[in-house]
Computed example of a mutant assay.
Amino acid sequence: MTSASKKIQPGWVTAPSIQAFCTTRLGGVSQEPFNSLNLGLNAGDDPSSVLQNRSILRTAIPSEPLWLRQIHGINVSTPALRHSMGAGPFEADASVTNIPNEVLVVLTADCMPVLFASNNGDVIGAAHAGWRGLSGGVLEQTVKAMREISPKLAPQDISAWMGPAIGPTHFEVGEDVLQAFSEQPQSILSRAFTPISGQPGKYLADLYLLARDRLDSLGIAQIGGGDYCTFSDPDQFFSYRRDKQTGRFASLIWISA
């Protein structure tokens, strides 16, 4: 990537074979409001600029990423499914692999990217977790898919990193979002949803807390991240809630050969 690009490294301790980073909006060729390293082809940007940005990204990774057609769902792209379906992009909001140098990627601009790695470095996952996917179980499905391709893998042997997402002081939601998480403990809900004064039925939601609780429930003890807010950091991050028309940044992970 160019000298103007900036990569965010996950704050976790994993096997030496695990490589991962998150891009920012810096270091690309797209013009406003997609300036500059927009990697999303469906954001409204000039496709030629996006492809040039993806070429810039490609210089920092060992292979073309496994781009997904994200739909805010819970489907997981696996090596077996990719083999049976042929060429992508695949309609899914998460992917897993145990194949060296196969690069997993999710695109976000307020939703939460979550990266997973087994502690011995033999299997990885990446999930796109907005409130719909998070409440629907995309994290659970990702871990399930990892364990299916590595049957001896226990949840306590998985590390997770929550990448840049909209922070709890800016994510305004309605009663429908609260209800979507109603199965989580009341103690978590009371902390994750703060009523907005003077706006009945409106809340500030904490995606990081909701995700951490679900990861805890799966038995994953090593959970990092949750340190950024895409909405309040326009210099580094795209934010759909802030700008409406904007680009997408990428979170990527692979097992080095």
Rank of each mutant, 00 (worst) to 15 (best):
Q31A: 15
L81V: 04
V123P: 04
S77W: 01
R69S: 15
A87N: 11
N101D: 15
A127Y: 10
S48E: 09
A20P: 13
L104D: 03
G27N: 10
E32T: 14
F90A: 06
A87Q: 12
P113Y: 10
N101Q: 09
S48Q: 12
D45W: 00
R69W: 14
G28L: 08
T23L: 06
H83M: 09
A43M: 01
A87I: 05
A15S: 15
V106R: 03
A117I: 06
V123H: 02
T14W: 09
A94V: 07
N42L: 12
N35T: 14
R54Y: 10
W12F: 15
R69Y: 13
N101L: 03
T108L: 00
L41A: 01
L68V: 07
A117W: 08
N98F: 12
F90E: 09
N101S: 11
V114N: 11
W12H: 12
F34D: 04
N120F: 02
M112L: 12
L41I: 07
G121M: 07
N53K: 09
E32Y: 12
I99L: 03
D45V: 03
S49W: 01
S55I: 00
D122N: 13
V106F: 04
I71V: 14
L57A: 05
N120W: 05
W67S: 03
W67D: 02
I74V: 15
V123W: 02
S17W: 00
M85Q: 15
I71P: 01
P47Y: 12
L66Y: 00
L37Y: 06
P79W: 07
N42K: 11
A87H: 10
S36V: 06
D93G: 05
N53E: 13
G121R: 02
G40Q: 04
D122C: 01
F21C: 08
I61T: 05
T59D: 10
G28P: 05
L41M: 11
A117V: 03
L107R: 03
A87P: 00
A43D: 14
D110P: 03
F21D: 04
D93R: 05
V13Q: 13
A80K: 11
D45F: 00
S84Y: 13
V106E: 08
Q70V: 10
T108E: 12
D46P: 00
E91P: 11
W12P: 00
V96L: 11
S95A: 15
R82F: 00
Q70L: 12
C111D: 15
R25Y: 13
L104Y: 01
G73I: 07
A87T: 13
P16C: 00
W12S: 14
T14K: 00
R58H: 09
P113T: 07
L57Y: 05
E102S: 10
L37D: 06
L57I: 07
A92S: 13
N38E: 04
S77I: 04
A80M: 08
D110I: 12
L104P: 01
E64I: 01
V13W: 05
L107P: 07
G88H: 08
S77R: 12
C111T: 14
I56D: 04
S48H: 10
I61S: 03
G88S: 09
W67F: 15
H83A: 14
L41D: 02
V50A: 02
I18M: 00
R25I: 11
L81R: 15
A126S: 13
A60G: 10
I61Q: 08
G121K: 02
R69M: 14
